[in-house]
């Protein structure tokens, strides 16, 4: 079986400090030669701290930044070879949920408009069919349909994130890039969204690229983990291996740094 997404030797360089004099601006290597695969229906967690380049990798797959080197193949098609106009079929297959639900929804559009324009763009449906599908999507993310005529500012953070997920599902994608989708949410809302994402993955056979700094969260939704540090992959493998028998020192440090809910037991033992 070939992978749905194949990332090979991906490198991304940013220019910092704009200057019109050529050669004067400095460059910064955000991602340095990263390779991994995602199979259809697989959940892949991309873990790293700030500056690790994990978000940049996601943005390159979404064609929001241009790689300087390497290849990204989706379903056998070379993504980096697309011209300035990304084919609609690719946009249909690969969708995204961002970290900040507030800024990821257009504040001047109702939820109905936000969903309808994506549906219309991809399926060119008649109006009543578009409306029916919008309501169906909202139902999929477990929001009642009266939210359709609300503006994003009238919803809570968790509800906004559900709408963002609904919008991502609208074109019926095969791969969902989730960039820190629960980091801006409170613990109680966080677990609701994580459960929803797990359900959707099972029901729709979605593949996930789940980007997060939070190891515990990644573990809930992934089968496979890639650990990044300063633009490079330090370790990758199935969840169980990485979490129980980490090989790289950095992974070990990362795992031991996560505040543990039962740390008090260890501390009580030390004090006694």
């Amino acid at each position: 079986m070939t992978a749905l997404l194949q990332v090979k030797d991906l490198a991304i360089t940013y220019r910092t400090g704009g200057s019109i004099i050529p050669g004067r601006s400095r460059t910064f290597d955000a991602v340095k030669g990263v390779s991994f695969d995602i199979a259809a229906g697989q959940g892949l967690g991309l873990v790293g701290e700030s500056g690790s380049g994990k978000t940049t990798v996601g943005r390159a797959i979404l064609r929001l930044v241009k790689p300087s080197r390497g290849s990204i193949k989706f379903d056998g098609q070379e993504v980096t070879a697309f011209g300035s106009n990304t084919p609609l079929s690719f946009r249909r297959d690969v969708q995204v949920v961002f970290q900040d639900p507030r800024s990821s929804l257009n504040p001047r559009r109702t939820i109905r408009d936000t969903l309808a324009q994506v549906i219309k763009r991809h399926f060119d449906t008649p109006d009543d069919e578009t409306q029916r599908r919008a309501a169906e999507l909202l139902d999929k993310v477990q929001l009642p349909s009266y939210h359709l005529d609300r503006y994003p500012s009238e919803l809570s953070g968790g509800q906004q994130q559900r709408v963002a997920i609904a919008r991502a599902l609208a074109p019926q994608p095969r791969l969902l890039v989730c960039d820190e989708p629960v980091s801006a949410l409170d613990v109680s809302t966080q677990s609701q969204i994580l459960n929803l994402l797990s359900d959707l993955r099972r029901d729709l056979n979605l593949a996930y690229l789940f980007i997060s700094h939070d190891l515990a969260v990644v573990r809930q939704v992934s089968d496979f983990v890639v650990v990044m540090h300063r633009g490079a992959i330090v370790e990758q493998g199935p969840c169980e291996t990485i979490y129980t028998e980490p090989q790289a020192d950095y992974t070990k440090l990362l795992l031991s740094s996560v505040p543990a809910l039962d740390a008090w037991k260890r501390r009580a033992g030390l004090n006694a």
Partner: peptide, 9 residues
């Protein structure tokens, strides 16, 4: 939301 619109095609 601008990125989301681009990804939305």
């Amino acid at each position: 939301y601008v990125d989301a619109a681009r990804v939305g095609g």
